[in-house]
């Protein structure tokens, strides 16, 4: 590890401060926004699209451990999970369980 500044400085300045700044902006903004208005509906759409993009990134171009797994295993498992969620009366728990078990199996088929 060869960083110019001490690690705690990274954690506090490059981590905590620059992260909380956006949360603080959210707190300051929410008191000025109409809770029934179109602005909040738009914010909801942006947050939804953003998390969907995060999921897509983890499935199509993952980093870390998932990068060592095969694309068909990731996509196949998610598809089985979604189908199970639907068949199980739109309950999340069986869907996730099916996705994870399928992923474990598909990793053996697509190493």
């Amino acid at each position: 590890m060869t960083s110019a500044s001490p690690v705690w400085l990274y954690v506090v300045v490059a981590g905590a401060l620059v992260t909380y700044a956006w949360r603080l902006a959210g707190v300051l903004l929410v008191s000025r926004i109409d809770p029934q208005g179109a602005g909040l509906t738009w914010v909801r759409a942006v947050a939804t699209a953003l998390v969907a993009a995060l999921v897509a990134r983890m499935l199509f171009t993952p980093s870390g451990l998932l990068a060592h797994t095969a694309l068909p295993a990731r996509l196949g498992a998610i598809a089985i999970g979604a189908i199970t969620w639907r068949l199980a009366g739109r309950r999340i728990e069986p869907g996730i369980a099916a996705a994870v078990v399928t992923f474990l199996i598909l990793q053996q088929i697509f190493p």
Partner: peptide, 27 residues
């Protein structure tokens, strides 16, 4: 060993997404 300034910039880009979430939850 990325310089502090560049590390802060990279982290803050990932944190912008927290703003809409804070607004939605607190509202």
């Amino acid at each position: 060993g990325v310089p502090l300034f560049l590390a802060a910039l990279a982290v803050t880009l990932t944190a912008v997404r927290l703003l809409p979430m804070v607004v939605l939850v607190l509202a």
